[in-house]
Design a protein around this nucleic acid. Structure first.
Length: 881
RNA sequence: GGGGUUGUAGCUCAGAUGGUUAGAGUGCCUCGUUGACAUCGAGGAGGUCACAGAUUCGAGUUCUGUCAGCCCCACCA
């Protein structure tokens, strides 16, 4: 049993343990299993590539909650799966094809899709593998994919119903178009960035030769598509000119000068050139004033139907146009101008607003209940501040463009009849037009926005539209864990669809985390090359270390920085646990595993550590329930390292190495009890390490992940009901610390034994210290310790509440230095006492503060005064030497 | 133009419900090789909690404003 390696080597056991868990079906549950339902559906990673650090954080938080609830006895389900990520995945495969010197059009839709499915197999499997490496306890038997049969059926059902209810419509609209991805995008897929641009002032002459109007534009190339110039109706400068006709320079088209209140009188010249085909606002104005839509920019970003400019790229055209305008005398001036430009959030190409026929979801009626759900508290964000972001967005929502000119995705179930021209939307494939019974049908080529299927994820994964036991048991799910960056993309849409199709929110809590950044605080990205592969970190430090690092030192909703040093620190913690366990296992050898001590067998140190353990269990549980996972982890860390290892283990050594068998058995019993309990407490955070160690403990059976989460109650037979455990422990610990300090000041090796004299002033501590003085000896290497009422003449001294401590060092101390040291300490004490005394002199404090606060201030002052006077005496004594 | 968020030790961050002399990790300095652990142990230095007001007996914590950084939303050409 003691043939346990000297250092923690996670590579030796993590994979094996995970395989065993999976083999034993420890992750699996059914709707029929007992316990309160607790369910999380995974935010499905994209099959575009591999898991990144952001996923690692997301999965770790989920796994902690899942493992905690599973141990608590809940019927716990973690539903895994992946997302087809339409635009992103298609782009990756197209990139691959480009490398092979071909493209999707050459391949054709069917062959191309085969290629994407191959890609999906490869990367989907890699993601599952990576999730396993992390220790994620997903129910793999239920793994889903947004384009699998069930999810696709759900998509169809939802689409058709929304269409039939008039909530999905097809329309010719101006939409965001990415010339590189060659598809329409929704508004939130456009990222606006401030760019330094120019404002070109142009001169448009009147047809009658009576002068000109000056317009300002940031996009001169669009002037080729201008079909009007607008001014504000109240603008005095133009009042008499409205209705006149202008000649569009270079094109020589006649266009009207008209009035529209959209125009801002104070911007530029107060006159706007209007290009209905290439600007959303102009599009609206064009509709209001019946303007022609002249399309001059093509889907690929080149000019079309633009005379000599035809075929030029939009930016090359801009240059040429400006040159030509200048030559023609139409350019007035060029100003620098900062403005926001939209970019495709996938490929970062500048967006081109274009008119095309697209499919939209009407959002307003879907948004209302989603707002209500948050306001009523049915749905809660953690941290709460994201509620505001969510509501604000929903209240200003616009229709959602859901069609994409891609091949990879859910093809829209609409058919056009070439005979009668009617369109039919159908849940099942059709080969005959229901209107004219014609057979010449062709299906809508567009696919749906990826997020359309993701929006159904919480119920499509549970078998909807069938009425399954899973839906009954686990919907609504307990919590959604995700980053703040996809609240709009995903969270709101799930809520809307959940409410619409299930009549209930899809989850009760939305637990939001931040982004994982690099050590300089930059976003991890492919272009910066600063991404860190979680699997590499796991190979080096172990999954437990990575998990622990990710969950500590951050609070819900905030970003965190990734450092190797922080993983190292977590690994060191794992090593500490490893060695503490090794210590116990070595000592356990050959001992009676069934021994149970009586209450009388327990000594103070035992009572203290059990008391601390119970406090830690309470605090950890409370923080887990509040989603304060980092705080919970920190509490366990402190308990294990500072209390259990640094103090308690040291205090058991006398008994373990002594000859009293009963005392040794008692110490071993408590050591094992505390360690075993702590392992269970820690298991959600560090699943592998806790499993392997616990399996080596004699009294633990079965997998730790199925063992109960520790409670104070399970310790009740061992817990002391004394209420002064903390106080007495402090007496010991403060005394130890003071002695160590004194030794260090003197340059004495901390492990070298030194004589110590204690003058105990607090009567309550006298008996306690006399009985437990060996703790001071053991922890501070203080021996012999004698109790005295007199102070030794030559000695270093220290004062703690209730006693004075002396290191007698005949002739060894430097009196001057000692006086200086004590004086410094005295100053500190006086400062504290003065502020306390000040408070106690304040009438208003005495009358208004709660009694217990006042009392504690009094006690504090008394203790401080006692210390001060004894220090003062000590200093005086030294000065008289 | 709105909204959010951050500002605490050299660095990275904790500090529900206001109540000792503000903490951790890491880095730094001194010391330590025999029995769990150098992936360690002991000790130490280091902070007027961004700034200014307000509320309060009492503010890192609540409120207002200022400054600085980051982020999101938004149709001013």
């Amino acid at each position: 049993m003691s043939n346990i390696a000297k250092t923690y080597e996670p590579q030796q056991f993590e994979k094996e343990i995970y395989a065993a868990w999976e083999r034993d079906k420890n992750f699996h549950t059914t709707a029929e299993a007992s316990g309160e339902p607790y369910c999380i559906v995974i935010p499905p990673p994209n099959v575009t590539g591999q898991l990144n650090m952001g996923h690692a954080l997301d999965e770790t938080l989920q796994d902690i909650l899942i493992r905690y609830h599973r141990m608590k006895g809940d019927n716990t389900l973690w539903m895994p799966g992946t997302d087809h990520a339409g635009i992103a995945t298609q782009a990756r495969v197209e990139e691959q094809l480009r490398g092979e010197g071909t493209n999707r059009y050459e391949l054709g839709r069917e062959k191309f899709l085969e290629r994407v499915w191959q890609w999906k197999e490869k990367f989907g499997n890699r993601i599952s593998y990576q999730l396993r490496t992390l220790g994620s306890s997903c129910d793999w038997e239920r793994e889903r994919f947004t384009m699998d049969k069930g999810c696709s059926a759900a998509v169809r059902k939802v689409f058709v119903q929304l269409y039939n209810e008039g909530l999905i419509y097809r329309g010719r609209r101006i939409t965001n178009w990415c010339p590189s991805c060659n598809t329409a995008l929704s508004d939130i897929e456009v990222e606006h960035e401030t760019e330094q641009g120019h404002l070109w002032h142009l001169r448009y002459p009147f047809a009658d030769g009576s002068g000109y109007v000056e317009v300002a534009t940031t996009r001169p190339e669009t002037m080729l598509g201008d079909t009007g110039v607008a001014v504000h109706p109240d603008d005095e400068r133009y009042k008499n000119l409205v209705g006149k006709t202008l000649i569009l320079p270079l094109v020589n088209r006649e266009i009207p000068l008209f009035a529209d209140s959209y125009v801002d009188k104070n911007f530029g010249t107060g006159a706007v050139k209007v290009t209905p085909a290439h600007d959303p606002n102009d599009f609206e104005m064009g509709l209001r004033h019946n303007l022609e839509q002249v399309k001059v920019i093509n889907n690929d970003g080149t000019m079309i139907d633009a005379g000599k400019y035809t075929g030029l790229d939009r930016y090359a055209c801009r240059e040429q146009i400006v040159k030509d305008l200048e030559e023609g005398g139409f350019l007035v001036k060029i100003e620098n101008h900062e403005h926001a430009v939209g970019h495709c959030h996938r490929c970062h190409t500048t967006i081109e607003p274009l008119i095309s026929k697209q499919w939209f979801v009407k959002m307003e009626t879907l948004a209302e209940p989603a707002i209500e759900a948050v306001k009523s508290g049915e749905l809660q964000f953690v941290p709460e501040r994201f509620t505001k972001t969510y509501i604000n967005w929903l209240e200003n929502i616009r229709d959602w463009c859901i069609s994409r000119q891609l091949w990879w995705g859910h093809q829209i179930p609409a058919w056009y009849c070439d005979d009668c021209g009617e369109m039919t939307v159908s849940e099942t494939d059709i080969d005959e037009c229901p209107h004219c019974h014609g057979k010449n049908l062709h299906r809508e080529e567009d696919v749906l926005d990826t997020w359309f299927s993701s929006a159904l994820w919480p119920f499509s994964t549970m078998g909807w539209p069938n009425d399954t036991p899973e839906l009954k048991k686990f919907y609504p799910t307990s919590v959604l864990v995700t980053g703040y960056d996809i609240i709009f993309f995903w969270v709101v849409r799930m809520v809307m669809m959940g409410l619409k199709f299930r009549g209930e929110v899809p989850f009760k809590y939305v637990f939001i985390h931040g982004l994982v950044r690099d050590k300089f605080g930059r976003k991890m990205s492919k272009s910066l090359g600063n991404g860190v592969d979680p699997v590499e970190i796991i190979n080096k430090y172990g999954a437990d270390s990575l998990r622990f690092m990710l969950v500590t030192g951050n609070t819900p909703g905030n970003d965190l920085r990734f450092f190797d040093e922080r993983v190292e620190s977590a690994r060191n913690f794992a090593n500490k646990i490893w060695n503490a366990s090794r210590f116990l296992l070595m000592n356990l050898e050959g001992f009676d595993k069934n021994f149970k001590p009586t209450r009388e067998d327990l000594e103070f140190a035992d009572e203290w550590i059990l008391h601390e353990l119970a406090k830690t269990i309470d605090a950890v549980t409370k923080n887990l329930e509040r989603f304060e996972l980092g705080e919970a982890a920190r509490l366990i860390y402190e308990f294990i390292w500072l209390e259990f290892c640094d103090y308690y283990i040291e205090l058991t050594k006398t008994r373990l190495y002594g000859s009293d068998a009963r005392a040794k058995s008692t110490a071993l019993f408590v050591l094992e009890k505390v360690l075993e309990c702590t392992l269970r407490l820690l298991h959600p955070f560090m699943p592998f390490l806790t499993e392997i160690i616990r399996q080596k403990l004699p009294n633990a059976q079965g997998s730790i992940m199925l063992a109960p989460y520790p409670t104070r109650d399970e310790l009740k037979d061992l817990l002391s009901d004394a209420d002064n455990i903390d106080e007495f422990a402090n007496v010991i610990l403060n005394t130890v610390r003071t002695i160590r300090n004194l030794k260090s000041e003197l340059g004495i090796d901390s492990r070298k034994k030194s004589a110590v004299v204690l003058k105990v002033t607090n009567a309550n501590y006298k008996k306690f210290l006399a009985e437990n003085v060996s703790y001071v000896t053991d922890l501070a290497f203080a021996e012999p310790i004698t109790f005295a009422d007199e102070k030794p003449a030559h000695a270093m001294s220290g004062v703690v509440d209730g006693l004075e401590i002396y290191l007698p060092l005949e002739g060894l101390i430097d009196v001057e230095k000692e006086i200086a040291r004590l004086t410094k300490e005295l100053e500190k004490l006086r400062k504290g006492a003065a502020s306390t005394a000040g408070k106690l002199k304040n009438e208003r404090f005495l009358s208004k503060a709660p009694a217990e606060v006042v009392q504690s201030e009094r006690d504090k002052l008394a203790a401080a005064e006692e210390k001060i006077s004894s220090l003062e005496q000590r200093i005086k004594q030294l000065e008289n030497l």
